[in-house]
């Protein structure tokens, strides 16, 4: 398909595309934290585990601390990176 550029592309899509990418980056950070802590700390023999709040350290970091961190990252992303756009049709022909 050739872009003949007889019209301007909807400017709001640039915002939308950017936010989709941010979503993707968040998932990758989320996955890395989750995977890294779980198998980084959890792969050794159970006798060598250390514990936080009574839970094995791998579980505390990968499932609780990472979850809290991801929630904070989502909040920051929404506050500083996501833009408000109007959903109303701008100029109805």
């Amino acid at each position: 398909m050739r872009k003949t550029k007889r019209f301007k592309e909807d400017a709001r899509y640039r915002v939308a595309n950017r936010e989709a990418l941010i979503g993707l980056v968040l998932v990758m950070i989320n996955f890395a934290l989750w995977f890294g802590f779980a198998y980084g700390l959890g792969s050794k023999p159970v006798e060598e585990y250390s514990y936080i709040w009574g839970l094995p350290a791998w579980f505390f970091y990968s499932c609780i601390a990472s979850t809290v961190l991801v929630v904070v990252l989502v909040m920051l992303a929404v506050k500083f990176l996501y833009k408000e756009v109007s959903f109303e049709e701008e100029d109805e022909e």
Partner: peptide, 16 residues
């Protein structure tokens, strides 16, 4: 991930 990923990816584009 479902909590933020679905809305970020479909999000505004789909709504518009």
């Amino acid at each position: 991930a479902t909590g933020y990923f679905v809305l970020s990816v479909l999000g505004k584009k789909f709504a518009i």
